[in-house]
């Protein structure tokens, strides 16, 4: 079987699916002051698994929107205006859907794959671990 390290270099997805990989990448992002992008990515995954009939789900959708999207945070800056408008309108109309953050998550993931993930694989945090 692949070693964890071999999996980490395979894709961002495999890195984030591994506990040690995800935590090490998080430490790296904290240092780079962009840990919000990763927390947002995990929040989207967590949200997708929530029960739409649970009143908590709307509150979580609002919390995600408030924390990462409506302000001028690093996540918000990396999202397309249309994506943000779509989420804002869904929340306003209280039309909550499991996939309402999927587009935003995909956009954030692409940016992470192109930037942070590549930087991580050459960072001293990663190399020291290896």
């Amino acid at each position: 079987p692949d070693s964890p390290l071999a999996r980490w270099t395979k894709s961002l997805h495999s890195l984030l699916g591994d506990q040690d990989g995800a935590y090490l990448f998080r430490t790296f992002l904290e240092r780079e002051k962009c840990v919000d992008t990763l927390d947002f990515w995990f929040a989207c995954n967590g949200f997708r698994q929530m029960d739409l009939k649970d009143t908590k789900t709307l509150r979580v959708a609002k919390a995600i929107y408030k924390r990462y999207i409506e302000n001028n945070s690093i996540v918000s800056k990396q999202l397309k205006p249309a994506t943000k408008t779509y989420i804002r309108d869904s929340i306003k109309k209280q039309q909550i859907d499991s996939i309402m953050f999927d587009q935003a998550q995909t956009e954030i993931q692409s940016v992470m794959e192109e930037n942070a993930y590549q930087m991580f694989l050459t960072s001293d945090i990663y190399l020291e671990y290896v």
């Binding site: 984030l16 699916g17 591994d18 506990q19 990989g21 995800a22 927390d39 995990f42 929040a43 989207c44 995954n45 967590g46 949200f47 698994q49 929530m50 908590k56 509150r59 979580v60 609002k62 919390a63 995600i64 408030k66 924390r67």
Partner: peptide
Amino acid sequence: IDSEDDLLQECISSAMPKKK
């Protein structure tokens, strides 16, 4: 009632990979 921050943290933690 949980605060918004708690709900958000709970949501993030639920998606983090667990030790196998």
